[in-house]
Amino acid sequence: MSLPSRPRPVALITGASAGIGAALARVYAEKGWDLILTARREAPLQALAEELARTGAASTILTGDLADPAAPRRLFDAIRTRGLTVDGLVNNAGFSRTDGFLNTDPAAHKAMIQVMLAAPVELARLFTPGMVERGFGRILNVASLAGQMPATGGDTLYGPIKSFLIKASQGLHLELRGTGVHVTALCPGYTLTEFHDANGTREQVSSAYPAWMWQTADHVARVGYEACEANRPKVTPGVMNNLLAGLAKHLPDRVALGMVGGHAKRLKRI
């Protein structure tokens, strides 16, 4: 399926201010897309838009917090008011809490569910009908290797939320076959981003797990983009990450849970 006949297709990327979201914006711009960038912080989006402009990409900035249940509809309306058409939806916004279920503010858990589960579903429901009508669309849901692994203690809700996103992506992928709309779940493992440089923790996070487990945001973004273009229902960057995901399917629960039991504790120490 070729790109739309308009000069440049447009991709909406949530959580675009840094990390994998910013890396995805760079890849989409490189591939000939214009962008709608959204996140809570305007300054990093402005800086990214200026960077992308040097590649010829035009960026529209719409700030907002997807933890607000009204945010997806507000975003949809703002885009429609500006006369923009969304050809690609990248649901990337997300965060985790590793202090434990009982030590985490229930409001933070509610926000996690809203940002990483409810908002992607609503945004897909809002934008997919137009994509189907036009016969072209791309939906890339940034899930996680954690969604394919046994549950962990400490970041108790993160893995289950990402598992949901993977399954929802696969179901939508099947439903939209033959429409020209591609749906892919991107499942990165540990990814080093500029967040670690900004807060001075790159050395610590790098030592929490072996070097082979870490990937760059640029690599993850490129793998995700190409998988969505190829209409693969799911992609996990990295041979070892795929090995871990496959191994987790076949290990007895007792062994698998023991294998991941120290995950949150290691991250908390950093």
Results as ranks from 00 to 15, higher is better:
residue 211 A to R: 10
residue 161 I to C: 05
residue 75 L to E: 01
residue 87 D to Y: 03
residue 238 G to M: 06
residue 165 L to K: 05
residue 258 G to M: 07
residue 227 A to P: 11
residue 92 N to W: 02
residue 55 T to F: 10
residue 139 I to Y: 04
residue 268 K to D: 12
residue 237 P to G: 06
residue 191 T to A: 07
residue 197 D to H: 12
residue 111 A to G: 04
residue 62 L to S: 07
residue 128 T to H: 00
residue 241 N to P: 07
residue 37 L to M: 08
residue 92 N to P: 06
residue 268 K to R: 15
residue 211 A to Q: 10
residue 236 T to S: 09
residue 37 L to I: 09
residue 56 G to M: 04
residue 63 T to R: 06
residue 184 T to I: 03
residue 192 L to G: 09
residue 210 P to D: 01
residue 201 T to A: 06
residue 28 Y to Q: 09
residue 172 L to Q: 14
residue 104 T to F: 08
residue 130 G to W: 00
residue 136 F to L: 06
residue 148 Q to F: 02
residue 141 N to V: 06
residue 213 M to C: 07
residue 88 G to T: 14
residue 132 V to R: 15
residue 1 M to Q: 12
residue 162 K to Y: 02
residue 69 P to F: 02
residue 181 V to P: 02
residue 251 L to Q: 03
residue 121 V to L: 13
residue 147 G to L: 07
residue 137 G to P: 08
residue 107 A to Q: 14
residue 190 Y to H: 13
residue 89 L to F: 04
residue 70 A to D: 15
residue 247 L to F: 01
residue 171 G to A: 13
residue 39 A to R: 00
residue 81 T to D: 15
residue 225 Y to I: 04
residue 39 A to V: 00
residue 106 P to W: 12
residue 41 R to M: 06
residue 228 C to Q: 12
residue 177 R to S: 09
residue 198 A to G: 07
residue 224 G to R: 03
residue 171 G to W: 02
residue 84 L to H: 07
residue 174 L to K: 08
residue 41 R to T: 13
residue 105 D to G: 11
residue 145 L to F: 12
residue 46 Q to R: 15
residue 117 L to R: 05
residue 203 E to T: 14
residue 122 E to R: 13
residue 213 M to A: 15
residue 2 S to R: 15
residue 35 L to H: 03
residue 176 L to K: 05
residue 136 F to G: 11
residue 90 V to C: 09
residue 155 D to K: 06
residue 189 G to S: 11
residue 237 P to V: 06
residue 225 Y to K: 01
residue 56 G to F: 08
residue 104 T to V: 12
residue 119 A to E: 04
residue 190 Y to E: 11
residue 162 K to F: 07
residue 88 G to P: 03
residue 141 N to H: 12
residue 58 A to D: 09
residue 131 M to F: 09
